[in-house]
Design a protein around this nucleic acid. Structure first.
Lengths: 335, 335
DNA sequence: CTGAAAGCGCTAACAT
DNA sequence: ATGTTAGCGCTTTCAG
């Protein structure tokens, strides 16, 4: 069997309390006994049980991560960043793909609580605000990532979607585009709404007319984007540029353009959002508004760990600035 | 505070043993008390502590998943499949990205043991076989996924890489290609070696000469593939087709071709392996040897859970058949 | 059918 | 500087 604290204590001829103390670097222990105990620990290949320690009220050193879908590149890239920072600080992360279904969110949250995770990172949409509030009321550290609910008092890390939208728009407008299509996620997705809002706002500032028919909403997958892009491009006066609210939708747009024999960027410019691996891999590579995913992951872990150490100050909302990455899917309009 | 088993016992006027029994459906409990207890449980919103239960020797209902990099689409897609099947069976999964470094593998394995996970799914390469053997000797259920070490007695789920290589080769050969380049991962990666072996074997059968200079090895990323593809394509007699051992390398190959002004598939055919989202998203979409990722994930979870229930028979090695998906990156050679 | 009690491995007062 | 002891929340004999 695995060695326990008792084995170490017996072997060292001391009490378990002493062993526990050297384990946690607490209390005063003479150098000799400490050394001796340490030696025995690794001779016995002793690994303290996180479970037992957690039962006495200590941490489990485990974080829960809720995302819509871990196989979506945006979230898997974020997950990697979170995992890395977690590992630095001694935390493991449990992944939970919710498919944006409240029902799954609830199931996972309940599960995570039973497993006594130290904190939960929520990067998935939640329709019912109460789920979140109830969770918060239990005092479990929670941080929202890439999704926010301004009315709820919770730590949040987001990118400035509005500014991102503006960035995308001014790029296109500077290139001379005026008839621009927009493909966003479903209306209820706040971040998408904000991106669109920034985009439209900027269009207005440039005096570009906003045509309601040029704004489409759909789910977040490639296929959805393709369908909407086809609609846009087959209209009477098709747009000369399209802003897709994420990389997947942009890929769909690219496919639609290809299907219609339109060249990108000659016949159609495309700007997307996120800058996942997808944006770098398409042909042409996509001009996109990049989210600093690595930084976001790091930040979110730090925040949650601070919160559970009690060193956390008041709730905060960190808004990161996105950045436009110019690649080859956009070009000046020729008229 | 959260309700404990004591709270519900007191509330129901019974002992905690009774509550425990209804919780686990063990022993004989009268219908009335069971009902009463159940009612109280949910009135108190009682959630049994997995931690406490684990301490008494029960399962933690948590699985560890070791992959090289969760942000690599192949692994994130597999992870999703594993997560889903795990959820079906009541298991959570902790993700661990190892970057294929033994040192990280060891750290993560130690951590997972301290957290008393019920089983570990290993989908990452391990150089030092002893790490695996040591783990197995502790009696922790382990399953290898997409990586195998035939000499070690461990449950394994893999795709038939050799056959996959054959499939890729015959497709290209049937299209008339004879000068074919191959880009594989580093030599030590078994699955890549097997794919190449199958590929070469089939070439021989078709009487296509194998040119040593046409075989390149590198890391698994897009950029690596691009570099090797450039070398291949800039040679005196460049190949008319390239087999890339995974989708990322194929993407790199696609980029190299574009950079050199070669059209795919007119000037160069490309076949890849995996069939991740990347293969569907490039232009042209890639002909690729698909791994049944969903099925693999399901299988691997079932295997490990069977093992932990003791219902597991002898160790087994499941070899799944890959399937060629023909898309637009390959075409008959015109001479 | 139900309960009392002994642990699981560890932490944290409180003594010594 | 080190040891004693009482839990943490649950499972599991073993009695009743």
């Amino acid at each position: 069997m695995k060695a326990t604290i008792y084995d170490v204590a017996k072997e060292a001829g001391v009490s378990i309390a002493t062993v526990s103390k050297v384990l946690n670097g607490k209390g005063k222990i003479s150098v000799e006994t400490r050394e001796a105990i340490l030696a025995i620990m690794d001779r016995l290949d002793y690994q303290p049980s996180v479970i037992a320690s957690a039962l006495t009220g200590k941490r489990t050193f485990t974080l829960g991560l809720l995302v819509p879908d871990i196989s979506n590149p945006f979230f898997s890239e974020i997950a990697r960043a979170i995992e890395d920072q977690g590992e630095q600080l001694g935390y493991s992360v449990m992944m939970c793909s919710t498919d944006n279904k409240d029902e799954k969110v609830e199931r996972y949250i309940a599960l995570l609580q039973q497993k006594k995770v130290d904190g939960i990172i929520i990067a998935t949409g939640i329709d019912n605000k109460e789920i979140l509030e109830q969770l918060l009321s239990k005092g479990i550290p929670v941080v929202l990532l890439a999704r926010d609910m301004p009315l709820v008092a919770v730590n949040t890390v987001v990118v400035d979607d509005y500014v991102g939208g503006c960035l995308a728009a001014s790029h296109l407008l500077e290139l001379g585009h005026r008839r621009i299509g927009i493909i966003g996620e479903r209306e209820k997705v706040r971040s998408s709404r904000e991106r669109v809002r920034g985009f439209r706002q900027t269009m207005e500032e440039y005096g570009a007319a906003f045509v309601p028919e040029h704004l489409k909403h759909c789910d977040y997958k490639v296929e959805d984007g393709k369908i909407k892009a086809l609609e846009l491009l087959q209209a009477d006066e098709p747009p000369t540029a399209i802003f897709a609210c994420n990389d997947m939708l942009a890929v769909g747009t690219l496919q639609a353009a290809r299907e219609l024999g339109k060249k990108v960027p000659e016949d159609l410019s495309i700007v997307s959002f996120d800058n996942t691996i997808l944006a770098a891999v398409t042909d042409p590579p996509l001009t996109t508004v990049a989210q600093p995913m690595e930084h976001m992951g790091k930040l979110v872990v730090n925040l949650i760990v601070e919160e559970l150490q009690g060193t956390a100050p008041v709730k905060q909302r960190t808004v990161l600035r996105p950045e436009l990455i110019t690649r080859e899917s956009t070009a000046a309009i020729v008229s």
